[in-house]
Design a protein around this nucleic acid. Structure first.
Lengths: 229, 229
DNA sequence: CTCTGTTTGCGTCATTTTAACGTGAAGTAA
DNA sequence: TTACTTCACGTTAAAATGACGCAAACAGAG
């Protein structure tokens, strides 16, 4: 029997699906690669796991060095093992997705990339590796999660109006949700707390500003979406 | 820059949480290790990913060689990355869980193990590595999944009565579910198909036998469980 | 100051879903 | 036949949901 580290191991990469919401659009951050493979193609930001790193360490490193951001919501998505997913050899990818507020970060291309850009999730370019697959799974996860778990506020400013939250849900779920029923559900579930402040300077009636309720008990609400067939 | 495969990579293992249901008890299959580390301790069955294997290949190999079973329901759970989870060095584990019908398999210890045994999920021994953690996550996943997705039949015989399915749900979810409401939901959702056959030889009224409806559309039912606090 | 158009906040009501429970038929054993 | 248990099918009240009405709050135009 071989000793422990004589086995050859696949490389381990972490790939990130970074979601941002801005101007009523859900977007994903993509890198244009400067190097082979997939030179000049768009891909998800990613990197190899270093020996002493946890997955989250790797995520932070990628977010920091390639995108100049930190302290964001991160969740593990799935691990991808197709033997041919990377032309350089056997690479296992652990997918994570991040939710960020683009207003808080000024995204810049690191030295590894030609360019970094936000892409509307409905107008995605071709992606290198199996990143289209990872992206699709991330979007699906976000869509199901937001229906029963309060992740929406991760994409908004700290203070937001019910209407803004409502628009976010409609944008992500790609459906129309009755404004008044949505308000009732969100308030009944104590998803948010009224701050007493109002958003000023708008053309019409000034809406109240809410913030996320951190004491919210989990699974306490359910936004329904018509099942498509 | 180093060439592609000069980087040192963590080892990659696959660990399995194999659930079985028998005698109104949900159980998990554990191995008693013959070798260090955790010699003579109970652990989840697992193995290292070979260079040319997919995760599912590794799962099948483990199930076949260590437990003598094949063709079972498998789903990826999560990937575990704690740096100290294996005393031998850096090992990333990809967790999978399996659902099997113990009546179909005769479990035998392979050459690597002292013993293989079913343990009631409510009476688990101490586990080596971080396997307690993996097990807990698997149990949680099974519990949430069974509430909206038809996985129950994976644990039962091909033909089963509504009462048997009902007992399975109560056992897994550790709660009481009204018998009549359960029946109605399962039937309304077309979770099962009536075969017209009856289970004979019972003491009382002979219940009808059902089988799983393979045309079932997803997310078509929802078994509710009182939220515990 | 008044009128107009729009958004916001709250409310109503019919319908559907859910939880709780009743009851008689089917079966075995005495 | 009787007694006892499980099975299959109902009933009903309460809660959740979906669809929609309406008046107050605001800015801007006249």
């Amino acid at each position: 029997m071989k000793s422990f580290h004589e086995y050859k191991n696949p490389s381990l990469a972490v790939d990130l699906v970074v979601f941002g919401y801005h101007n009523n659009t859900l977007s994903v951050l993509l890198l244009n690669r400067k190097e082979e493979p997939f030179k000049d193609c768009w891909t998800l930001p990613g990197g190899f796991l270093q020996m002493e790193e946890t997955f989250l360490d790797t995520c932070s490193r990628i977010l920091q060095t390639k995108l100049g951001m930190k302290e964001v919501f991160l969740e593990q998505l799935y691990s991808f093992d197709a033997p041919d997913r990377d032309p350089r050899g056997r690479v296992i990818a652990v997918g994570y997705y991040a939710l960020i507020n683009p207003a808080k970060f000024d995204v810049v291309a690191g030295s590894m990339a030609n360019d970094v850009k936000w892409f509307n999730v409905r107008k995605m370019p071709a992606l290198g590796f199996d990143h289209k697959h990872i992206f699709k799974q991330a979007l699906q996860r976000l869509r199901s999660k937001i229906q029963y778990y309060p992740v929406g506020f991760e994409l908004l400013d700290e203070l937001f109006t019910i209407t803004e939250l409502h628009e976010l849900y409609e944008c992500i779920l790609q459906t129309t949700i009755d404004r008044r029923n949505f308000r009732r559900k969100i308030l009944d579930a104590a998803y948010v707390v009224n701050t007493g402040l109002k958003r000023e300077g708008l053309k019409n009636r000034h809406p109240e500003l809410y913030k996320f309720n951190k004491q919210l008990k989990k699974n306490s609400f359910q936004i329904n979406v018509p099942t498509e067939t």
